[in-house]
C-alpha cells in the first residue's frame, strides 16, 4: 500500500515537475490614454488591411493604386475644453498608412475630462527638419532609417509621401508610376480637427481618415497623366505640389472616438 502510494507520489512529481519556469508576465498597462489612429482608405477600404499593394481605385477618370503612403507629424496635441493644448509625448508621430502597426501612436496618462479636438503639424519645424537625423533613437519617428522619410543630403525630411501606379484611362492598359513627396520648409502645415470627446480612465482610440481618391480630387483636380511626379522642387513640380498639399490637408477627416 505504502509502495503504491509512493509510486503515485513519484508519478505526480513526474507530471508536475516538468512545467517550465513561469516567467513574470509582461505588466499590463491599465493607465488611461489615447491612440491617434490615421487610417488611409482607397475605394473605401482601410489600405492597411488590403493584402499587398492596394487595388486600383478611380479618381479624376484615372485608375490608380497606392504602393507607399506615409507621413511625419509634429506638435501632435489634444485641444482641451478651455482651448489650451496638451502635447502628446514629444509631439512627433510617424504614420505608415500601409502598416496597421505603424499608423497609430498611443500616449498614456492623459488627464481625464472633455476635449474638443486635436491639432498637429504635417511636417517639421525648419530647425528640426535640418538637424542631424542620426541623433534620434532607432525607433523614434524622426530616425531616418526607421521611416525612410529622410532625404539624406541636407534637404531634411519628406513630410508626406504617396507613391503608386496609375492607368491613364479606360482604353489604355499602360501602367505608369506616380510619386509625390512633400518636403522643404515651404510645406509644413498646421491643422486642427475639431471634435468633442471625453477622456476617462480607459484607453480611447481616435480615428482620423484620409481617402486616397480625395488627395487627387478635392479641392484641386489632379490628373496624373498631366503630372505624376513631384518632389517639391522645380517650378512645375512646386505648382503641382501646392495643389496636392491643399488636397492632403483637406483630406484629413475625423471619424470617431471609441
Amino acid at each position: 500500500m505504502k509502495t503504491s502510494l509512493l509510486v503515485s507520489f513519484a508519478a505526480i512529481l513526474l507530471f508536475t515537475s516538468c512545467e517550465p519556469e513561469k516567467e513574470n508576465p509582461t505588466p499590463v498597462d491599465n493607465s488611461n490614454g489615447i491612440t491617434l489612429k490615421f487610417v488611409g482608405q482607397i475605394g473605401g477600404t482601410d489600405i492597411s488591411k488590403i493584402s499587398g499593394v492596394s487595388h486600383f481605385s478611380k479618381s479624376e477618370g484615372e485608375r490608380f493604386k497606392v504602393s507607399n503612403w506615409a507621413m511625419i507629424l509634429s506638435h501632435v496635441a489634444l485641444i482641451k475644453d478651455n482651448g489650451d493644448t496638451l502635447q502628446l509625448g514629444d509631439g512627433y508621430q510617424y504614420v505608415n498608412y500601409l502598416d496597421e502597426s505603424k499608423n497609430g501612436r498611443t500616449v498614456r496618462n492623459i488627464p481625464t475630462g472633455r476635449y474638443k479636438g486635436i491639432s498637429f503639424m504635417l511636417g517639421l519645424d525648419p530647425g528640426v527638419n535640418h538637424d542631424d537625423p542620426a541623433k534620434w533613437p532607432a525607433n523614434h519617428p524622426l530616425n531616418g532609417f526607421t521611416t525612410g522619410l529622410h532625404w539624406g543630403w541636407s534637404s531634411g525630411y519628406i513630410f508626406h509621401a504617396i507613391d503608386g501606379n496609375y492607368i491613364k484611362d479606360s482604353v489604355s492598359s499602360m501602367i505608369n508610376g506616380f510619386s509625390f513627396h512633400t518636403a522643404t520648409d515651404k510645406y509644413p502645415k498646421q491643422l486642427t480637427l475639431n471634435f468633442e470627446f471625453d477622456i476617462d480612465n480607459t484607453l480611447k482610440t481616435a480615428y482620423i481618415i484620409s481617402n486616397a481618391e480625395d488627395i487627387f480630387a478635392k479641392p484641386n483636380s489632379i490628373k496624373l497623366a498631366n503630372g505624376s511626379v513631384s518632389h517639391s522642387e522645380g517650378v512645375a513640380e512646386i505648382v503641382l505640389m501646392d495643389k496636392l498639399v491643399q488636397n492632403i490637408v483637406a483630406a484629413f477627416m475625423f471619424n470617431k472616438v471609441e
Binding site: 506615409a70 500601409l98 531616418g144 532609417f145 525612410g148 522619410l149 539624406g152 543630403w153
Partner: peptide
C-alpha cells in the same frame, strides 16, 4: 537616391524603395 540614398546608400524602408 530614392532607392540608394542616405549614408548607407540603401533605402531601409521597404515601401520607400527598400
Amino acid at each position: 537616391f530614392h532607392c540608394h540614398g542616405g549614408e548607407l546608400a540603401q533605402q531601409q524602408n521597404l515601401n520607400m524603395g527598400g
